[in-house]
Design a binder for these strands. Sequence first.
DNA 1: CATTTAGCGGAACATTTCGTCCGTTTAACC
DNA 2: GGTTAAACGGACGAAATGTTCCGCTAAATG
Lengths: 234, 234
Amino acid sequence: MTGTNERTGGSPASRPRRPRRDAEANRERLLAAAVSAMLREGRNVPLAAIAAEAGVGVGTLYRKYPDRQALMHALEHRAYDLLIRVLEEIEELECPGRRAIGEYLTRCLEVRDHLVLPLRGAPPLMTAEAVRARRTINRMLDAFLARGRSDGTIRAGVNATDVIVFTTLITQSPPYGPDWRLPADRQIAIFLGALAGDGPADLPGPEITPDDVEDAFAAQAARTACGPGPSRSG
Amino acid sequence: MTGTNERTGGSPASRPRRPRRDAEANRERLLAAAVSAMLREGRNVPLAAIAAEAGVGVGTLYRKYPDRQALMHALEHRAYDLLIRVLEEIEELECPGRRAIGEYLTRCLEVRDHLVLPLRGAPPLMTAEAVRARRTINRMLDAFLARGRSDGTIRAGVNATDVIVFTTLITQSPPYGPDWRLPADRQIAIFLGALAGDGPADLPGPEITPDDVEDAFAAQAARTACGPGPSRSG
DNA sequence: CATTTAGCGGAACATTTCGTCCGTTTAACC
DNA sequence: GGTTAAACGGACGAAATGTTCCGCTAAATG
């Protein structure tokens, strides 16, 4: 997140007043309300409903997020921040590679509500900041995988992109409700089993690099950008 | 049969006319148009756009499918039919268990466009017919798994529900565009590796039965049914 | 406490989508 | 071919949603 600059520079002409304290709080409230309302009613819940749930007027919502897409983008940035924070916490655990990956998958599942909506509800964000965040995530996962190969807990051939794809699978998959947790946990166990196992080690195709992924994202963004219509959730 | 011509049943009062040939064709056209339009523009593409793409008037659409939900339900039924047909084809192959599962996953991915939208875009259909279809799918997959355990290509502990969940993961996951195919194929390979491998065989929790799944579905349906608002895509 | 103004709320307006209704078309039947 | 009614198309009013605008509130400042 761009940590709103403290007391912007300091233009001498009209001394800038410090931003109101409730303004920033409202921004948080709106994001939280957006998540909760969208999870409950679906992605296309009216923006007015989100504003109401946040306890603010529509005007306030529109001032902070000019349209629905801006709101989603804010959520996406937030999601990246969250993922990176999770990865940093796991790094401090200094645990074996496979265990680290397992932790990551489990924790992603736990914060699933904050990932479902923003990530891949629409073409991903292509700002420099977003791209950088995705690369960071990829790099940190790669470090875990490398460690796992060293300590013998992870076989060769699986890379960070594979893990990320799997993460999106279990977090983005339809909400079976609270009962969804167990099925997902079993999928994670199966995946981890494959990481350790000595089953057929040759995965199809060349390994998929972060660059490949970004290319695909860009293509997707370009495609829907040109598209004629509303083009929201895919 | 007992003499007299076919001609549906035969209510003596008002002889029923045979349905017009273009009527049924239009129904197909509408479903195809719905899939293509929704894949292109998103789930909430206006119904008018679907009608236009099908080359019919809105009136025709609304007569056949009174509202959006009816249309989605028709697609869901179609999806089940498709899956069962795929399973029957694989059955005729009489191949080893693991190969059968692999075929299933691959073919599901190939017909993904016909599965993404109807399955789990909203709470699943709870009609007797839909429930029966889901059980059939589960049973047929279970047969493959049993065969796999017999012929030694699939380890114990993974059941049909696990496979179905994984199928929804790879088919429901966000559309990376045409490039999505390779990542998904790698996930399939990883999954199949886990099926064969002798990694940690103990998956968390008790196995999930079809009944468990139906219970969860029913709960989800009940939850969203009571919900106040629009409640479309989750 | 008075002043200032960023920020707020929500009515009002614009736009999109829904779903119906009815005159017209066209396939089935004789 | 002529008759019949099922099926069609698309204009239309209703409803929902998006977006703007401006008078008012209250937080910051001195």
